[in-house]
Design a binder for these strands. Structure first.
Length: 137
DNA sequence: GCCAACGTTGGC
DNA sequence: GCCAACGTTGGC
C-alpha cells in the first residue's frame, strides 16, 4: 500500500482544521501542480499519508487517510485539476520536524528533504516506518 | 522579509 | 520546440 505526504500551511488549513472536519474529512483542493495532481490520481481509498505543516512548524504532525478517489477540484475552473478527500486518523505522539528528517540518514532520499516545494508527495514504506518509529508509534 | 529553487507561460 | 521571463513556494 502506497504512502503519501500532504503539505499545508497551518495558518491557512492546519491539522486542527482537519480534525475539526471529523470523519467527513475534507477535499484537498487548491493543488495546481501536475506532479502533485498525478500523485493524488494514484491514491486509493484507505491509503494513508503524513500531514506536514510548512512554513510554520515545519513538521509532520499527524496521519491522514484517503476517503475519496481523485475527482475534479471544486475550486478550479478547469476540470483537469483533481483532488482527493482525506480525513484525520490520529496525531503523531511526537511531531517530526524537517530538521530531524534531514538529520536522519535513513530519510536522506525523502522527497520532503530534497524537493520541499512539491505539495503532495509519495513516501516509501521504509521512510514511513522510520517516521512512525521516530514519532513513537 | 529575503531569496533560491522550481514550474509555468509566452514570444520567437 | 526552445528558452527567457515571470510567479509562487517555502526554508531561512
Amino acid at each position: 500500500m502506497a504512502r503519501w505526504l500532504f503539505k499545508s500551511e497551518p495558518n491557512v488549513f492546519g491539522w486542527d482544521d482537519l480534525i475539526a472536519k471529523g470523519d467527513a474529512g475534507e477535499e484537498w483542493d487548491g493543488v495546481r501542480n501536475y506532479q502533485a495532481r498525478n500523485n493524488m490520481r494514484a491514491m486509493k481509498i484507505g491509503e494513508q499519508g503524513l500531514f506536514y505543516h510548512s512554513n510554520i512548524g515545519k513538521e509532520a504532525v499527524g496521519i491522514v487517510e484517503i476517503i475519496a478517489l481523485a475527482h475534479p477540484d471544486s475550486t478550479a475552473s478547469d476540470p483537469k485539476w483533481e483532488c482527493v478527500d482525506i480525513k484525520a486518523v490520529k496525531p503523531l505522539p511526537r511531531a517530526i520536524s524537517l530538521d530531524e528528517a534531514k538529520a536522519e540518514p535513513r530519510l536522506k532520499d525523502m522527497v520532503l528533504v530534497n524537493n520541499s516545494r512539491l505539495s503532495v508527495q509519495p513516501v516509501t514504506d521504509e521512510e514511513w516506518d522510520v517516521i512512525l518509529e521516530l514519532a513513537g508509534l
